[in-house]
Amino acid sequence: MYMKCIINGGIKKSRKMNFNGTVKELLDKLGICDQIVVVKRNGRIVTEFDRLSDSDTVEIQQVIFGG
């Protein structure tokens, strides 16, 4: 089983990955700053301390761009 991860920062990217850990750990792994994104797990907004697992669909939406 793989976690589906959608990264939406202007251009939408989707990938499947093996991951077990918190939202914050996932963002660190992907090199994304937690200050500029909102994360949804299976369609619901979660905190950076919520845990993720392989069966989840995770959407990372960039909400801070500047300008």
Binding site: V38, I45, V63, I64, F65, G66, G67
Partner: peptide, 29 residues
Amino acid sequence: EKEIALYAILRGLKSDFGGCPYVEEAFRP
């Protein structure tokens, strides 16, 4: 700022986010 983004999403004020195409020239970013 991040709390405002969250507020705007939850109140249905904003769903698509993007940046000004000319912002990269500035010191602020």
